[in-house]
Design a protein around this nucleic acid. Structure first.
Lengths: 174, 174
DNA sequence: GTCTATAATTTGATAGAC
DNA sequence: GTCTATCAAATTATAGAC
């Protein structure tokens, strides 16, 4: 969100809409309107929707992974990931973008599906590196599932407070 | 899936496509093609897409809640819900339909959003009724989050085995 | 109930002027 | 880089014949 190039502003608009409506839920014309240009000009920056969505996913993944860094223990890893997901709920009131694309995966252009998969692979690795087999072998997948699902429940129930309860409950089981 | 009326066949096709691509990811023409009629004939059964999606969500919710019944203890409730979600992964290889619509909620027609919300409210109540404050107050939301998120991770990572690991991990923490 | 035909709008995408 | 203009295809939905 820092850079103010038109390319980034388009990606900002795309991220907002994709996280609310999914890949099939936004159009070039809507993005163009959001940033104050015409849809033909969006195609100058991103030739196809697949290219745009791939760039969007890469940017989202890079930003998230940079913010997480390399936590040293299982608790710090848990807390950092929890803080990251909490921001999606409390600040942006939206799904995780990769969670949205992950759910839609089978109807996504292959390069977008692949970029989405890479994000979750890296997130899983980051968590497992911080908590090797402790307290259980696949705890990383459970934590990610619970967080992604908590965002989903927040939207489905229209109740942001669900997220904090799930995190507290999960922390207790840690 | 039992009744063989055209109405039910259309809903079957809609469910399959909605669980793969979301509300914005399927069209009347595709459904018509799936069941061997023309899109105008789909409109005879469901005047608008919103009406169709609402009926679809009601049917999905009713089927799921009937199958769950009224489990007597927390373990039985956990096992029944786990079995229900497992079927979505192993048999149908698709998202939970209400999970999909829940994620897309803010871009859904209001009646579809409302039907989706009701499903999760009832699921939560069912779990809380079976496990009152045991072992923790909001465990029901955590379990639902983990299951919905596990389906999402299965799709995102294209790895069905994620689901069983998450369930095993969750059961351990029970 | 299903069809043909069609309306009105939107979609992703391209050509070419400036 | 952004525009106007345009395209071919797809979208939800309706009217009316059979």
């Amino acid at each position: 969100m820092a850079e103010d190039t038109m390319r980034d502003r388009i990606l900002d608009a795309a991220e907002s809409r994709a996280r609310q409506s999914g890949y099939h839920g936004f159009s070039f014309r809507e993005l163009a309107s959001d940033v104050g240009i015409k849809s033909a000009s969006v195609h100058y920056h991103f030739p196809t929707k697949a290219v745009l969505a791939e760039a969007l996913t890469e940017r989202y993944a890079q930003t998230a992974l940079e913010r997480l860094g390399a936590p040293e223990g299982p608790l710090e890893a848990f807390n950092r990931v929890a803080a990251l997901f909490r921001e999606a709920v409390e600040v942006e009131d939206k799904m995780c973008q990769c969670g949205m694309f992950g759910a839609e995966r089978d109807s996504l252009p292959p390069e977008v599906a692949a970029a989405t998969e890479r994000y979750f692979q890296r997130l899983t690795e980051l968590l497992e590196r911080a908590a090797p087999k402790n307290p259980a072998p696949y705890r990383a997948e459970t934590i990610l599932s619970a967080f992604e699902g908590a965002l989903l429940l927040v939207k489905a129930l229209d109740d942001p407070s669900v997220f904090d309860r799930v995190v507290a409950d999960l922390r207790r089981a840690y």
